[in-house]
């Protein structure tokens, strides 16, 4: 199949950007979106042009590194699919695809389609972990956890931190990411000790970098892991409790 690509090219963080048009020819419908870009890049390298920079690592939808705004949708048109798992059969021969980087003040552009997502690390540093002794691994099933709780935690822990929620959100909010990272620890017994410090801390850092939620649900639709906005409601409830708990204990 043959496609026309309009790709955002930007030489550096402060350089002006613009769309450039490229032809992707003889693309197999079985190839992934990133393989298609590899193909285009090989052509660019052959004629001595700068290849298109894009984010990628595992290419099997589990690392959260890739992410492109494709035709106005984060990770493209397929549901619950990261860009690397998106296949060209989702498109038709002759389509024009517009490729843009994630855009948010918390995600400054580094080059072309590559953005800096360190703001997510700042949120995690504020409590997206549990403080435990790191010696030998504890025995499995030492702490009994009901199946429903484990499932709930696992649904939240599925977040790979790709940033599609921020990219898709009309407000540039990181609620879905933060809520998932808070929820998967807050429902488990191991997460209780730091529950309220975690919730308040992570939300406060999130608000330094990102926008606020207006409950449109666009993040949920874009999420490659299909994480539910129910977690955002859970976070809101925990934040209210955290604010009052942390006051009492200080």
């Amino acid at each position: 199949m043959n496609l026309t690509l309009r790709v955002w090219r930007q030489a550096g963080p402060d350089a002006p950007g613009r769309f450039e048009t490229y032809q992707a020819t003889d693309i197999s419908e079985h190839s992934s979106f990133l393989e298609m870009l590899d193909n285009v890049n090989e052509g660019l390298i052959e004629v001595g042009e700068e290849p298109i920079e894009f984010m990628h690592d595992c290419r099997e939808g589990i690392c959260g590194t890739c992410g492109i705004m494709i035709n106005g949708q984060a990770h493209g048109p397929a549901q619950s699919t990261a860009t690397c798992q998106l296949h060209m059969r989702s498109f038709s021969d002759g389509d024009e695809l517009v490729l843009e980087p994630w855009r948010a003040s918390g995600f400054p552009i580094i080059k072309d389609l590559v953005v800096d997502r360190a703001a997510f690390d700042r949120i995690i540093e504020e409590g997206g972990y549990i403080t435990v002794d790191t010696a030998s691994a504890p025995d499995a099933n030492l702490i009994p956890i009901p199946k429903e709780t484990a499932d709930f935690a696992m649904d939240a822990a599925a977040c790979i931190g790709c940033g599609a929620c921020v990219a898709a959100c009309p407000n540039g909010a990181a609620q879905l990411f933060t809520a998932a990272k808070i929820a998967h620890l807050n429902v488990l017994p191991q997460g209780q000790a730091e529950r309220y410090q975690r919730t308040e801390g992570m939300v406060d850092v999130m608000e330094e970098y990102f926008g606020s939620c207006t409950n449109m649900g666009e993040c949920e639709a874009a999420c490659p892991k299909g994480i539910s906005i129910d977690f955002i409601a859970t976070m809101n409830k925990d934040y209210r409790k955290a604010k009052s708990q942390n006051r009492r204990s200080s």
């Binding site: 955002w8 035709n71 843009e100 855009r103 003040s105 407000n171 926008g211 606020s212």
Partner: peptide
Amino acid sequence: MNRNARPDSYRS
């Protein structure tokens, strides 16, 4: 706050 969170909007 939300305007500041995406000062540079999507072109497409």
